[in-house]
Amino acid sequence: MDRFILTADIGGSHISSGVIALSSMQILKDTIATVKVDSQADAENIISDWTKALEQSLENHAGTIEGIALSMPGPFNYEEGICVMKGVGKYESMFGYNIRLVLFEKFKKYIADPSCITFLNDADAFVLGAVQSQNYKNEKVIGLTLGTGFGSGFVENGQLITEDSRVPKGGLMYCQPYKEGIAEDYISTRWFVKEWEKREGEKIKGVKEVAEADKITSQQLFDEFGSHLSATLKPWSEMFQPTKMIIGGNITNALDRFSSPLKNQLNIEEIIAYPHTEEASMIGAALHFLQQKK
């Protein structure tokens, strides 16, 4: 008999959830639910929206579940299940909340105890899930999520590497010192938005507008973005020596516009765009649940 886990990827604007069959590590399509979330709202409304998505997934699943596995942005105390987001423009009303206990109260009829709810950083979840889907289990992989922020994860032989001299602490690239600030200041949507306004005198919302603009500035920005990305990755790439790099997130569609510096500067045999970021994050969260329960 198959076993199942309820999983979800929590983002800044919505939550996607579904039930995963552990025999295939596939999300049951009929159970996929997406609910918009106002991450600036009060805690009660946010929890209500998260609960709504999870309940919708369970309503379309006839079997039982062994637990709930969540892919969650940081800062977050993943071991304890406590939200510590402050100064990041999302979910600040949740600061100090023990999300594990809050969700257990909502779903205790489905699971045995609070330890059946696990949390994993969203970028780590993405790379774990993408490694599974790409069958890269015997590879050394760097996974990146590029969009509003700069997420990263390192996987070797199917296992997350977070505390190792070959990777930054926690596998976190975004906070590495770079130029006059940190890496994320130069590797994020806000860098494109700021630089476009500075050079073109126009306000834009995101990278899609840069990609679609028929202007020299457009390719200049992508070239510079690729150079910033390769420069921040190079020292860690030399130490970790990955064989593959998987890139997800909102900027994935433009990979061919900024991939040249990555290919020229980093000694990685294959660099791919993986557009199914949420699906990979949900699968990765479920894999983490299984590893925690061993």
Results as ranks from 00 to 15, higher is better:
282 M>F: 05
66 E>K: 13
289 F>A: 05
235 P>L: 06
123 A>T: 08
183 A>H: 05
199 R>P: 02
144 L>I: 10
18 G>I: 08
66 E>L: 02
228 H>Y: 04
212 E>L: 12
266 L>G: 10
145 T>R: 06
215 K>A: 10
227 S>M: 13
68 I>N: 13
276 H>P: 06
98 N>K: 03
240 F>D: 07
101 L>R: 15
214 D>Q: 15
35 V>R: 02
121 N>K: 02
127 V>F: 09
23 S>K: 14
32 I>M: 12
32 I>V: 14
32 I>Y: 08
293 K>R: 14
48 S>G: 12
206 G>S: 04
263 K>M: 15
1 M>T: 01
230 S>M: 03
112 A>C: 06
26 Q>V: 03
130 A>P: 13
185 D>E: 11
33 A>C: 11
78 Y>L: 06
75 P>Q: 04
129 G>D: 03
75 P>Y: 11
261 P>R: 09
91 Y>Q: 07
112 A>D: 07
91 Y>N: 07
205 K>M: 00
172 L>A: 14
229 L>D: 11
243 T>G: 05
186 Y>P: 04
71 S>D: 10
287 L>G: 06
128 L>D: 08
87 G>C: 02
160 L>T: 06
241 Q>V: 13
139 E>P: 02
226 G>N: 07
130 A>H: 08
192 F>I: 05
7 T>Y: 01
145 T>M: 06
113 D>E: 14
210 V>G: 04
90 K>N: 08
263 K>T: 13
11 G>Q: 01
212 E>W: 12
60 N>G: 00
252 T>C: 08
67 G>N: 10
221 L>K: 09
270 E>H: 14
183 A>I: 04
229 L>R: 13
244 K>S: 08
37 V>F: 00
132 Q>W: 15
248 G>N: 01
107 F>M: 10
103 L>P: 10
89 G>M: 03
162 T>G: 10
219 Q>F: 02
30 D>M: 01
230 S>V: 05
248 G>M: 07
89 G>T: 09
111 I>M: 04
173 M>P: 04
113 D>S: 13
111 I>N: 08
213 A>M: 10
49 D>W: 14
69 A>C: 03
118 T>S: 14
281 S>T: 09
283 I>K: 03
262 L>Q: 11
27 I>M: 02
114 P>I: 03
109 K>T: 06
155 V>M: 12
93 S>W: 03
175 C>S: 13
53 A>Q: 11
268 I>V: 13
67 G>H: 05
246 I>K: 06
135 N>R: 15
163 E>C: 02
62 A>N: 11
165 S>L: 15
109 K>R: 14
54 L>Q: 12
188 S>P: 03
137 K>L: 15
117 I>C: 13
150 F>N: 03
85 M>P: 01
166 R>W: 02
20 I>R: 00
185 D>K: 01
94 M>G: 12
110 Y>L: 00
167 V>F: 07
148 T>L: 07
192 F>K: 01
197 E>G: 06
63 G>I: 07
114 P>E: 08
115 S>M: 01
171 G>Y: 00
68 I>P: 04
